[in-house]
Amino acid sequence: MDTTVNGEPRVLATDAAVALIDEIRRDYPDILFHQSGGCCDGSSPMCYPTDDFIVGDHDVKLGEISGVPVYISASQFEAWKHTQLIIDVVAGRGGMFSLDNGREKRFLTRSRMFGGGEACAIPGVQKVV
């Protein structure tokens, strides 16, 4: 699977997300993201220590943000394959098992449809593949 569509990365991060990633990596140097498909924590991007999460055979790697791999289930990817995901941060509590929990800010996925090569309109987005 290609981590870009027409040269645009499938996943990006805002500056705020990169700052929170850096904060988490001080405590947990090796982490990964898995885009949740619903259930307990809605559809939040969940951040885990690499050793505490088993990437499934059917998970799809979307790319990397700030050197951290981002995965999504194959069924969720099928629904969102025409969408660029932008990992951002908002105030609040993170997912119950996600490493952003307890930091009074949490990761949030924003998105935009691929097509036409339009620029992402979210300020502070870092294009990291």
Rank of each mutant, 00 (worst) to 15 (best):
A119F: 06
T14W: 14
N6S: 15
V55Y: 08
V128A: 12
F97E: 12
L62W: 08
I122D: 12
S73T: 15
K105G: 05
K127C: 06
V5I: 15
I24K: 00
K105Y: 05
R10T: 05
I54D: 14
H82M: 08
F33S: 01
A19Y: 04
G115R: 12
A91G: 09
S111Q: 13
L62Y: 08
P123D: 08
E23C: 03
I54W: 06
G42L: 04
T14K: 11
S43R: 02
L108S: 11
V68K: 01
C40M: 07
T83L: 09
A79R: 15
V90S: 04
V89S: 00
A13W: 13
S36F: 07
R26V: 15
I72M: 15
S75D: 11
P69V: 07
K81M: 12
D2Q: 15
V11T: 06
T83R: 14
G63E: 10
G92Y: 10
E64I: 06
D41V: 14
A79C: 08
V18K: 13
W80C: 03
C47N: 03
M96P: 00
G95H: 01
T14P: 08
L12S: 02
I54R: 12
V90P: 01
Y28R: 01
C39M: 11
M46L: 14
H34Q: 10
V68T: 00
E104D: 15
K127Q: 12
A91R: 04
A121W: 09
V68F: 00
H34W: 08
V89I: 13
D88F: 12
K61M: 15
R10H: 07
R110E: 09
D2M: 13
V18P: 04
F33T: 00
F97N: 01
D51P: 00
D52Q: 10
S73R: 15
E104Y: 05
R25F: 00
V129D: 14
P49F: 02
A121G: 13
I65A: 01
T83S: 10
L12M: 14
H58S: 14
M96C: 13
E118K: 07
F107G: 05
G94A: 02
C120H: 04
M113Y: 12
P123L: 05
I31C: 01
G117V: 12
I72L: 12
E64A: 08
R26A: 12
L20E: 00
V55F: 11
F77A: 01
M46T: 04
P69I: 03
G38D: 08
F114N: 07
G42W: 13
V129G: 03
E23Q: 05
Q126G: 00
G7T: 13
T50C: 03
I31T: 02
R112Q: 14
I54H: 10
F33H: 02
I65Q: 00
T14G: 13
L20K: 02
A17L: 02
A119D: 13
G94P: 02
D100V: 04
T3H: 09
D59K: 11
G56Y: 06
K105L: 03
V89L: 11
E118I: 08
Y48V: 01
V70M: 01
D59G: 07
E64G: 04
C40V: 10
T109P: 03
R25C: 02
E78P: 03
